[in-house]
């Protein structure tokens, strides 16, 4: 779900950069050098994970995984997503530097918000954790699609139809993300519970 360069209007681009700078700044402030390496390598794992194409009916879509990243990293998901998107710009030229701010906020904002909203559920056991993880995956994509759509719609009346199409197209992806996030969190809770302890408590 990338917005390409050249679509958004000046104020939306500037707003995206400002919000992302604040998010990255806050995320980095809480992140000390002991955990930096872990965040970097997990960010790489997410970059790779988001290249996974899963079949959904007749088509396939790639996973976004911002909800899972938020569930594991908490606020540090913000800089992690920023880094991954910058790398996509450098390696594949998906979006340039100007639209990067908006794209980072669209993806990372929902990731961190969901981590705070459903973090307490993630720390419980059994069904509550599965529900929390599903919500993380589902709502992170839903919010990301809505933010992307808002950024488009705010940039011009002509983009409103595109914005609606983006939200509708992401409904099946939300369900798959929710399911995959729930199963992945269940797996991690069994195999490496310490990976989940950085989810925010409040």
């Amino acid at each position: 779900m990338h917005i390409s360069e050249g679509v958004l209007s000046g104020p939306v681009l500037a707003g995206g950069w400002a919000l992302s700078a604040v998010g990255v700044g806050l995320g980095l402030k809480r992140l000390d050098y002991d955990r930096l390496m872990t965040v970097a390598i997990l960010s790489a794992a997410f970059f790779v994970g988001s290249l996974i194409h899963v079949p959904i009916g007749p088509v396939s879509a790639h996973l976004i995984l911002n909800g899972l990243l938020g569930a594991i990293l908490g606020p540090a998901a913000f800089p992690a997503i920023a880094v991954a998107l910058l790398l996509q710009a450098v390696l594949f030229q998906y979006g340039g530097l100007i639209v990067l701010g908006a794209n980072v906020f669209d993806m990372a904002g929902p990731a961190v918000a969901c981590a705070f909203a459903f973090g307490p559920l993630l720390r419980r056991a059994g069904k509550a954790r599965a529900v929390g993880a599903f919500c993380c995956g589902f709502f992170a994509v839903l919010l990301a699609a809505l933010l992307t759509a808002c950024a488009l719609a705010l940039s011009g009346e002509g983009f409103v139809a595109t914005a609606k199409a983006i939200v509708v197209a992401h409904v099946p992806i939300m369900l798959v993300e929710g399911a995959v996030t729930a199963m992945a969190v269940g797996f991690l809770a069994k195999v490496r519970p310490e990976l989940l302890v950085h989810a925010p408590t409040r």
């Binding site: 390496m37 872990t38 970097a40 390598i41 997990l42 790489a44 794992a45 790779v48 994970g49 996974i52 996973l63 995984l65 899972l68 594991i72 399911a179 995959v180 996030t181 729930a182 199963m183 992945a184 797996f187 991690l188 195999v191 490496r192 990976l195």
Partner: peptide
């Protein structure tokens, strides 16, 4: 999901 989680576990251990 299991593949992905396994990649994360290995990435974490490696880090």
């Amino acid at each position: 999901a299991a593949l992905l989680a396994m990649v994360l576990v290995r990435a974490y251990d490696r880090s």
